[in-house]
């Protein structure tokens, strides 16, 4: 059975290049023991999210039931079924940051971005998240925007940081 027979053919044709990349990834891991998690990591990298079409494609290619893939994709917090905003804003909620006031930073971000933790704004610009310890406890409380790390943050400087990304 061909892959496209299972689900909307348009999903594959619309994203031809991305699915071709995914196919390469799958071929690379084929034959390895327990390939599912590494494949999902790379698939998310390519598509930005593990949408149902992506899961179905992987299911066909690896011969793993979609049910099982969905189970894995929803189990781990790093996997997402919906695309996230361009700027992923996360406050470290590890113990060291928490005792040094991470909650206040988070409250300020909720106010500043107008979204709750776990939400993405309407324009798809910002996603606000609480993250587990990033291990930069020496700089607590820590705020991350994509790969940029801001250490020793205070609620006062939050608006300035966010403005920088609004303009970018």
């Amino acid at each position: 059975m061909s892959v496209s027979s299972v689900f909307s053919a348009s999903a594959v044709t619309d994203n031809k290049e991305k699915f071709a990349k995914l196919q390469e990834v799958i071929e690379r891991y084929r034959g390895m023991e327990g390939p599912l998690v590494p494949v999902l990591h790379e698939a998310q990298e390519i598509f930005g999210a593990l949408t149902l079409d992506v899961q179905k494609y992987i299911s066909e290619a690896l011969n793993v039931p979609v049910m099982q893939i969905y189970g894995v994709a929803t189990f781990y917090s790093q996997f997402t079924l919906k695309p996230k905003g361009k700027c992923k804003v996360s406050v470290c909620m590890g113990t060291a940051c928490y005792v040094r006031g991470a909650k206040k930073i988070q409250d300020k971000l909720v106010e500043n971005l107008g979204i709750q933790v776990g939400e993405t704004d309407k324009d798809g610009k910002f996603t606000l998240e609480a993250t587990r310890c990033v291990g930069a406890c020496g700089l607590s409380p820590v705020l991350l925007v994509n790969d940029d790390v801001y250490g020793r943050t205070t609620p006062d400087i939050v608006p300035n940081i966010m403005d920088k990304y609004r303009k970018a």
Binding site: V37, L40, F75
Partner: peptide, 25 residues
């Protein structure tokens, strides 16, 4: 093998399930 953000995977049997590509239970 890269984890994917699940604290329970630090538990030995859950870690092994995760290496095998399953839910880390």
């Amino acid at each position: 093998r890269l984890g994917a953000g699940a604290f329970v995977c630090g538990e030995e049997t859950a870690l092994m399930s995760s290496i095998e590509g399953s839910r880390g239970e």
